[in-house]
């Protein structure tokens, strides 16, 4: 049985970002983590941390979350029809970087969210490079 959720998807504004500390210097705040897509596709995520696990999907340009300190999130990109996964990007406009490990061959990436905010955006590109292609069309 899953315990308390470690990752709370929210359409609301993001809570205060960054890492704060208790009177013993331990990090107590939760970090900001944004996942999302560019192009056509979706991300399947599986998050685990001290307080439990949560999994789900994100198929929006930005799925904003807050995450318990030291949560590990595994992100797997699934390209839509006629698209393929290209790379993981951050959100430069928000000064957020994708601090993930080197992706697997299928693009799966592991992100350990602690001490710093992060954003991982899956970039999908159209196969053929000129928009959606239709099978069989010439």
């Amino acid at each position: 049985m899953k315990t308390r959720l470690v990752l709370a998807l929210s359409a609301m504004s993001i809570v205060a970002a960054g890492c704060e500390f208790d009177h013993l210097g331990r990090p107590v705040n939760r970090q900001r983590f944004v996942m999302g897509i560019r192009g056509e596709g979706r991300i399947v995520y599986a998050a685990s941390g001290k307080n439990g696990e949560q999994s789900g999907e994100c198929a929006l340009p930005e799925c904003r979350t807050t995450v318990d300190f030291d949560t590990v999130i595994v992100l797997t990109p699934f390209a839509g029809d006629h698209y393929r996964f290209k790379w993981w990007d951050g959100l430069p406009a928000s000064n957020l970087t994708c601090y993930g490990d080197v992706p697997n061959d299928d693009g799966t990436i592991k992100v350990n969210v602690a001490y710093r905010d992060s954003a991982c955006i899956a970039v999908f590109e159209a196969i053929g490079g000129s928009g959606t292609t239709v099978p069989g069309a010439r």
Partner: peptide, 17 residues
């Protein structure tokens, strides 16, 4: 490996870092 060798991880502060 080195972190554990030198006891640089204090679990009550952080179990990972």
């Amino acid at each position: 490996r080195v972190s554990m060798l030198y006891d640089m991880i204090h679990p009550n502060a952080s179990e990972t870092f």
